[in-house]
């Protein structure tokens, strides 16, 4: 069983800045209370998307049903990445699967947490020598908790989840920010595995910009490579282009320049 303290940390130590965006000044006296409330709610309501590829999946039903009943802890399964808070990966991740896992992870709404269950997610487990299996999950996406074992029992799963809850409540579970801040790193690993033309329909960089999650290592050589071969997907913003009005406007523009 993996302890909270042994959670692998990708990259540099993370500053603790939950709920407060850098540079914003909170003047509201109730801000801290409010943040506490939000963090509490986040820790007590976790929707879980399980990506059950390996044998580890069989240990989840007992964790959910009457014996251990995850719902006590506010945890319940959900089906689409948009709705989920936790991405639960149980077992080995083949290269093909990993593409889908990454897409799913990118489609989830932050704050989002990844739990790797079973040894296979930690180091490839018994597939260590397989050419087609991704060995370390946290090379490709930030993982909040590994629950090791082959396979971990439901008690271990529950314990791991409780650990995550504790981390969320105390504001330590912010690995998801790392994906934005060091996107280049993760992308590089992904590119090494999938090839240089790897891309997903999600636009992580734009998202990072939009939500002020842009970090020093968001961009780099790998993102440059990405932009090289990929036309960035523009969001299909709603636009009102009434031809007559536009024509008039452009005419007046021309008129302006002529003068």
């Amino acid at each position: 069983m993996t302890h909270i303290d042994q959670v692998p940390t990708p990259g540099a130590p993370r500053p603790v800045e939950i709920g407060v965006k850098p540079g914003t000044k909170r003047t509201n006296p109730f801000a801290r209370v409010f943040d506490e409330l939000v963090r509490f709610a986040q820790s007590r309501s976790l929707f879980m998307l399980h990506y059950c590829t390996g044998c580890g999946a069989v240990e989840l039903p007992p964790a959910m049903t009457s014996r251990f009943d995850m719902e006590r802890l506010g945890i319940q399964p959900m089906v689409s990445p948009r709705q989920a808070d936790i991405l639960l990966i149980t077992g080995y991740v083949s290269v093909k699967t990993l593409k889908r896992v990454i897409l799913t992870y990118e489609q989830m709404n932050s704050p989002k947490y990844v739990i790797g269950i079973c040894s296979c997610t930690v180091n490839g487990g018994m597939y260590w020598q397989s050419y087609a299996t991704a060995k370390k999950l946290n090379d490709y996406m930030p993982v909040d908790i590994y629950i090791a074992g082959c396979m971990p029992r439901p008690e271990a799963v529950i314990e791991g989840l409780r650990g995550l809850i504790e981390n969320i409540r105390t504001g330590r579970a912010d690995a998801w920010k790392d994906y934005y801040r060091r996107y280049d790193h993760y992308l590089g690993n992904q590119q090494r595995l999938f090839g240089a033309d790897w891309q997903t329909p999600t636009d992580v960089i734009a998202e990072a910009r939009h939500y002020d999650l842009f970090g020093p290592a968001t961009l780099g050589a790998h993102t440059a490579l990405l932009e090289q071969h990929q036309r960035p997907l523009e969001a299909l913003e709603m636009r009102i282009e009434i031809p007559e009005l536009m024509r008039r406007r452009s005419r007046s523009d021309q008129g302006g320049t002529a003068q």
Binding site: L37, V38, F40, A41, Q42, R44, S45, T65, S66, D69, E71, R72, G74, D85, N109, S110, P111
Partner: peptide, 19 residues
């Protein structure tokens, strides 16, 4: 099963809005 705690519906809503 035991089921969710008393304020679970509220926590869900708060969490979702706080994403």
């Amino acid at each position: 099963r035991v089921g969710p705690p008393l304020l679970q519906p509220l926590w869900d809503i708060i969490k979702l809005h706080a994403k």
